[in-house]
């Protein structure tokens, strides 16, 4: 029964996923391609590419698409594949949700205790470093192109970066508006 298996596999992926979407991709690949053979490696690569170019958390995108394709590949009709897609996505969510809810209740109750506050007092500066590191790591060829690959694309990328940085920081342009503007810019420029 593919649906029961999807539920078990994706619940497992959800709870063993530390480190967000990208870490989840390798877990999904391992379970869905290597262990259960629901998808081929090429199919999975396509799904990852689409998950990255659609809105929303990559883990959810990938789970939805993988659930859908797995059910189709097992020979079920398309309407039941929709069920598989929704099932896979929800299976990934429910265990972390319960865990996070428990933590959330604890935090709301003890947020002002001395120990919790001193834990956060050290964590907060660390988070700033974490986000800075994320931004640094994203300044990659993948996101900005490179001088060797295409000087034009590289310069445009840097200009867009500066525009978005100054726009949100100094002029408080809404991030959503910024994303739409830069998407239109990309469409017109390239």
């Amino acid at each position: 029964m593919i649906f029961l298996k999807l539920f078990i596999v994706f619940s497992k992926i959800g709870i063993f996923n530390f480190g967000g979407g990208y870490a989840m991709l390798s877990l999904i690949q391992n379970e869905v391609v290597e262990k259960n053979h629901w998808l081929t490696n090429a199919e999975f690569t396509d799904i990852v590419a689409i998950s990255q170019t659609t809105p929303g958390p990559i883990g959810i995108n990938c789970a939805t698409y993988t659930g859908y394709t797995s059910v189709i590949n097992e020979g079920y009709p398309a309407w039941s594949a929709i069920l598989g897609a929704v099932l896979a996505s929800l299976s990934i969510l429910w265990l972390p949700f319960i865990l996070m809810l428990t933590i959330s209740k604890f935090l709301l109750k003890h947020h002002n205790s001395y120990i919790v506050q001193s834990v956060f007092r050290v964590m907060r500066p660390a988070i700033v470093g974490l986000i800075a590191a994320a931004a640094l790591l994203l300044m990659s060829e993948e996101n900005f192109s490179s001088w060797d690959e295409s000087p034009f694309a590289f310069i445009v990328s840097i200009l867009i970066f500066c525009f978005a940085f100054v726009g949100t920081r100094l002029y408080k342009i809404h991030p959503i508006l910024m994303i739409i503007l830069c998407g239109i810019a990309g469409l017109l420029i390239y």
Binding site: R124, P125, L138, F144, S157, F161, A164, C182, I189, Y190
Partner: peptide, 26 residues
Amino acid sequence: KIFRGVRPAVVALIAAPCFSMAKSAR
């Protein structure tokens, strides 16, 4: 094409709040 425009912007959006966060983090 849209994505080539959006990607550098996303990096900027992530980098920009670092400064205000540094203030909140004291």
